[in-house]
Design a protein around this nucleic acid. Sequence first.
DNA 1: TATTGTTATACTCTATAACTATA
DNA 2: TATAGTTATAGAGTATAACAATA
Lengths: 141, 141
Amino acid sequence: MSTEADDRALGDALARMSFEVMSRLTQLAAEEGMSLTQLRVLGVLRDRRPRMAELAKGLGLDRSSVTGLIDRAQSRGLVERVPEEGDGRVVRVALTAEGVLAAQRMTARMAELLADVVAPLPAATRASLRAGLEQAFASRG
Amino acid sequence: MSTEADDRALGDALARMSFEVMSRLTQLAAEEGMSLTQLRVLGVLRDRRPRMAELAKGLGLDRSSVTGLIDRAQSRGLVERVPEEGDGRVVRVALTAEGVLAAQRMTARMAELLADVVAPLPAATRASLRAGLEQAFASRG
DNA sequence: TATTGTTATACTCTATAACTATA
DNA sequence: TATAGTTATAGAGTATAACAATA
């Protein structure tokens, strides 16, 4: 039986966990002199090469915000702007070689940090947590 | 058996979920013309009346950042600064009557929004997810 | 001297509105 | 005209360093 109190307890637990995870990710990004948003950009670009507008949508930001974001990432040599052939208005964003390395580094560290977050749990609980999360967030990236 | 691949899958699922939750909470805060950080402040103050330094530590921010944060919340009439008797250096932060109402409003909406996030899951999965999260994040606030 | 909080400063992130170039 | 991206501008959030008041 699912009561309102249960729902609230679940919501509170979700919120607490999310703040903890965000805190870890922010810290990880900071270690590379980066913001959480820059970390997200690297994550998105690992396996995509989106237009500016697509990137903005994926991050839930205005296009104008992404302009500055990519300006700064580009200054650091992490990404490049690639003009689209066939439509002179379009700009695609891609990781540079250096950006690929940074993304790999962050991905590895991220797995560590987040595994650490749930390490105190017994293995069985970790397994059911993973199963639950994967069902709920499989393809919403 | 817990493998590295399992850990990574769990980490990825955690990160995806956290971004989804943060996105919802940011949206909720925005509906009240507030930032995610202001929402967190309200959440902390629901049942506490911390010193500036304690609040900073709880939020993981520098004291100087919290000065501006509380300045803005105070301008909106949500919080007040209360001088500490016995130690003229200390300032405590407390919700105003209006702040209490805002916090209650947000708490209710938050439960809705986050319940909505996990609504697609079968009840049994929700229950085990909640159990796992509560074990892991019971008192880390 | 040490602690608490604020101020000064600078940078990142973000949005809105106006603009340019291309279609 | 419509679309893609940028620029101009402004405000929030954040940190570091220096400061004032109090202990």
